[in-house]
C-alpha cells in the first residue's frame, strides 16, 4: 500500500463513521471566562474517544486551538489561560485515560503496538482520533474557521497535513521524526521501546516501513499553514524545516519559562489575542 492510499483509507473509514458527539458541561471548571465540557466522539474502529472542550464567554466567534495528545496515559485539562482566549479542544486518543474503556494503552508498549504491519499499527487509529477531533472543532459554531490552530507533536503535524483549514501549527517534542536514528542516542523511553522491540526479534525493515507512513517529513508538504517548530538543534530538524512550506524555527533555550512564553506569544500574535504567561505575574 502506498502512502496516499494508506491515508486515504483512514479518511474513508472516518467518513462512514458518524462522530455522534456528546457534550456534558463541567460546572466546577466553568468560570466567568469560559464554559467547559467533556466530549465523547466516535472515531474509526469505531472507537469512542474523549476530549476536554472549553468555549470563552462572550460573543464569538473565537479563535480555536486543537491540542493533540502527548505520548503518555494522561493529558492535562487545557490551561485556564488558553480557555479564556480560544475555543480549546484537547483530545485523548484511544487507550489514554478517559478513552480507555475497551483498550488501555501500555507504557512502555504503545509506541510499538502493531508496528510490524502498517495496517495494524496503533498509531493509524490514533491519527484518526486526532483527525476526528479536528473535524469536531471546525464544526463548532463558536469557532472562527479562519483562526484555528493545532498544537502538539507529530500528531499535530499529521492532523494539519490531513485536514486543510488550519491557520497555524505549533510543533514541539516530535516523537516520530527520525525515530530510528534517535533511538540510538540513549536508552530513554519512549524511543527505547523501539530498541526493546527490535531486540525481541522484530524485523527492522518492517518497523522502518511502518514508521515511514508517519514520518513528519513526508507529510510536511501538505501543511500550508504557518508552522512554528520548537527545536533545540536546528541541524537535526533541517530536513523537516525545509519540507514545511511555511515554517519558522523557535530555538528552544531549555529555559522553559522563556520557551513557554515565546510559544504562547507566537500563536497569540497570529490570532490577535493577548499573550499570557502561565507564571502569574501580578
Amino acid at each position: 500500500m502506498d502512502f496516499e492510499s494508506y491515508w486515504a483509507a483512514v479518511d474513508d473509514e472516518l467518513a462512514v463513521v458518524p462522530a455522534r458527539a456528546v457534550l456534558e458541561s463541567v460546572a466546577e471548571r466553568s468560570t466567568a471566562e469560559s464554559v467547559s465540557y467533556t466530549v465523547r466522539l466516535t472515531s474509526s474502529g469505531p472507537y469512542r474517544v474523549f476530549g476536554h472542550l472549553s468555549i470563552p464567554s462572550g460573543p464569538g466567534p473565537f479563535p480555536a486551538l486543537l491540542m493533540t495528545p502527548r505520548y503518555g496515559s494522561v493529558n492535562h485539562v487545557p490551561h485556564p489561560n488558553d480557555r479564556s482566549r480560544y475555543v480549546v479542544f484537547g483530545v485523548m486518543h484511544r487507550g489514554q485515560r478517559l478513552a480507555d474503556e475497551s483498550f488501555a494503552a501500555a507504557y512502555p508498549g504503545l509506541l510499538t503496538l502493531g508496528i510490524d504491519e502498517p495496517a495494524s499499527y496503533i498509531y493509524r487509529g490514533i491519527v484518526a482520533d486526532c483527525l476526528r477531533a479536528a473535524e469536531f472543532l471546525f464544526g463548532l459554531a463558536e469557532v472562527d474557521p479562519a483562526r484555528v490552530a493545532v498544537s502538539g507533536d507529530d500528531l499535530a503535524l499529521l492532523t494539519a497535513a490531513r485536514r486543510p483549514g488550519f491557520g497555524a501549527v505549533r510543533l514541539s517534542e516530535l516523537l516520530f521524526y527520525r525515530a530510528m536514528e534517535a533511538r540510538l542516542r540513549s536508552s530513554l523511553y519512549p524511543l527505547e521501546e523501539l530498541n526493546d522491540h527490535l531486540r525481541a526479534g522484530a524485523v527492522e525493515e518492517q518497523v522502518l516501513k511502518t514508521l515511514s507512513f508517519f514520518d513528519p517529513v513526508r507529510h510536511a508538504s501538505a501543511v500550508s499553514a504557518p508552522t512554528l517548530v520548537a527545536a533545540d538543534d536546528a541541524d537535526w530538524f533541517a530536513p523537516l524545516i525545509e519540507a514545511l512550506p511555511a515554517s519558522e524555527v523557535y530555538q528552544v533555550t531549555h529555559l522553559d519559562g522563556t520557551d513557554n512564553d515565546a510559544l504562547d506569544a507566537w500563536l497569540a500574535d497570529r490570532f490577535g489575542v493577548p499573550p499570557m504567561s502561565r507564571f502569574v505575574r501580578p
Binding site: 492535562h76 507504557y107 523511553y189 527505547e192
Partner: peptide, 8 residues
C-alpha cells in the same frame, strides 16, 4: 501525570 519508565 507520568507513568514510571523503566529506569535503565
Amino acid at each position: 501525570i507520568s507513568e514510571p519508565t523503566v529506569p535503565k
